[in-house]
Design a protein around this nucleic acid. Sequence first.
DNA 1: GTTCTAACA
DNA 2: TGTTAGAA
Length: 120
Amino acid sequence: MRIGEVARLAGVSVRAVRYYEEEGLVRPGRGANGYRRFDERDVEVVRQVRGLIECGLPTRIIREVLPYLDSPDALLPEVPCEYMIEQVERQREVLERRISCLERNRDALDAYLAAARQSA
DNA sequence: GTTCTAACA
DNA sequence: TGTTAGAA
């Protein structure tokens, strides 16, 4: 199938599918006309990728976890979970930093407001 | 009509 | 990511 159908079936934009390929998340073949050729498996992969990206995972990490998604079940419960947990922990740290930054900015505005009201 | 690449917002 | 330009 061509990119348009994959995008439709996976529920993402054609643009997104091309981007996923750039990031090495999907490897469609190419027809003589230069068009990307996908199979049914790719639809599922694209759905997986979309889900992981929505969870805030960098494409770099997804690229590393992807190979395990179609491996034997023995590896699925173990490896990907630890990896996921590690990523979520880092994501939490990112939020922590953003919260701190926002709090500082809020306090700065409070200070300005307090000073402005006195001179007013 | 659909896809491609490249580039800009 | 969306969108757009020009070409196949």
